[in-house]
């Protein structure tokens, strides 16, 4: 009898241990593909996510303590920087690119507009060390975190080690970012069968599948590959995307294909934020494509859309707005953690 109780206790213990571990925090949508991120190397726990969330919202990461990740990746903007063509950094500096929105990162294989970052863990190093963004050095941030009143105990809770390391710092940030999942837009509800498209949205969906889906592949609404979408070069920036990183001609003007989810919250559009409205984006695809050597083959046949069709297409694109994600309180500034420390 005692033995049975003991076994029951042990089984119960393991059940509670596993309940709410990686599957509890990451609610993988059933209609999404398999994740790219290797969760076995960085298993998610609530403590790690809490730490990552605090780091994400804490301006301690920037050189002068004025800029946090959330400064340019605001939760209310789908973690992008609404109304800013190019994002801001310390000392009122302006960068060269539009801050991309952050969601569904577990499904992405490269990061930054030029795809120069090969893993979510390593992405934060780029803005952190960029002189125009956070202007810091990784080593200095580690020292600041170690010497703070708040962080050693948060690292202890997350990693059973109060010594702050670069690895743990980056893994915690990634852990929080992995929880930013947008999968509750009207489109998703239609897929689950709990809502229906209007006729206009349905027509737009049809047009989307014919004209856009090969690059902005559903259900993530991006293949997350890099491509040249025929934007003329902005000579004030001379940004050649991936080509700038690799120095390879075939990579010139390749930029990462963004998701079409949450467009309502993430304007302006394109890597340099040149288009304020979706209409301008559609006009680019129907009559603005600039043909050059690296232009994506997907534009071999021109995209033709009547103005009614454009309206229908936009109606469909608006079904990809996910207010539940954008206003999810779990993703917001962690007042309870950060204000207690001040």
């Amino acid at each position: 009898m005692n033995k049975k109780l003991y076994i029951l206790f042990v089984v119960g213990f393991f059940c509670t241990a596993f309940y709410g571990s990686k599957f509890g925090f990451l609610d993988f949508p059933e209609h999404f593909p398999i994740v790219v991120y290797n969760l076995e190397k960085n298993p998610l726990t609530q403590e790690k996510i809490n730490l990552g969330r605090a780091l994400f919202y804490d301006p301690i990461l920037s050189k002068d303590g004025t800029i946090s990740c959330a400064s340019c990746h605001s939760p209310y903007n789908g973690f992008a920087h609404t109304d800013h063509e190019l994002s801001h950094g310390i000392n009122d500096q302006i960068g060269t690119r539009n801050a991309p929105p952050l969601f569904n990162l577990a499904w992405q294989k490269s990061f930054n507009w030029d795809g120069a970052i090969n893993h979510l863990d390593m992405q934060a190093l780029a803005p952190l060390n960029d002189a125009r963004e956070m202007g810091e050095t990784t080593d200095s941030v580690i020292v600041k975190l170690q010497n703070s009143a708040l962080y050693p105990s948060l690292f202890m809770a997350a990693f059973r080690d109060s010594i702050v390391t670069g690895q743990h710092f980056l893994q915690a940030l990634a852990a929080f970012e992995l929880t930013l999942i947008s999968a509750n837009a009207k489109y998703d509800k239609v897929k689950k069968g709990t809502e229906e498209f209007t006729i206009q949205e349905f027509n737009g969906y049809d047009l989307f599948q014919k004209n856009c889906n090969s690059c902005h592949t559903e259900p993530l609404f991006s293949s997350y590959e890099l491509a040249n979408n025929g934007l003329p070069i902005d000579t004030t920036l001379n940004d050649y995307g991936k080509g700038q990183i690799t120095g390879v001609k075939a990579d010139s003007l390749l930029f990462k294909i963004p998701s079409l989810r949450n467009l309502k919250f993430t304007h302006p559009y394109m890597h340099d934020g040149r288009f304020k409205r979706l209409n301008e984006v559609l006009n680019h695809y129907t009559k603005g494509i600039q043909h050059n050597k690296t232009l994506s083959e997907k534009f071999k046949n021109p995209i033709v859309l009547s103005s009614n069709e454009k309206t229908d297409l936009i109606a469909f694109l608006l079904t990809l707005n996910d207010s539940e994600f954008v206003f999810n309180p779990d993703n917001k500034y962690p007042r309870d953690i950060l204000s207690n420390a001040k």
Binding site: N38, K41, N42, A116, I117, N118, H119, L120, D121, M122, L125, A126, L128, N129, D130, T138, D139, I142, T165, G166, Q167, H168, L170, Q171, A174, I245
Partner: peptide, 24 residues
């Protein structure tokens, strides 16, 4: 190893042996 995310010890990115503007 270059594409396997954040690692510790000798591979910790704070050793000054990891690029920040691109991975590697």
């Amino acid at each position: 190893t270059n594409v396997s995310g954040a690692m510790g010890g000798d591979l910790d990115p704070t050793n000054g042996m990891y690029w920040t503007w691109q991975s590697g």
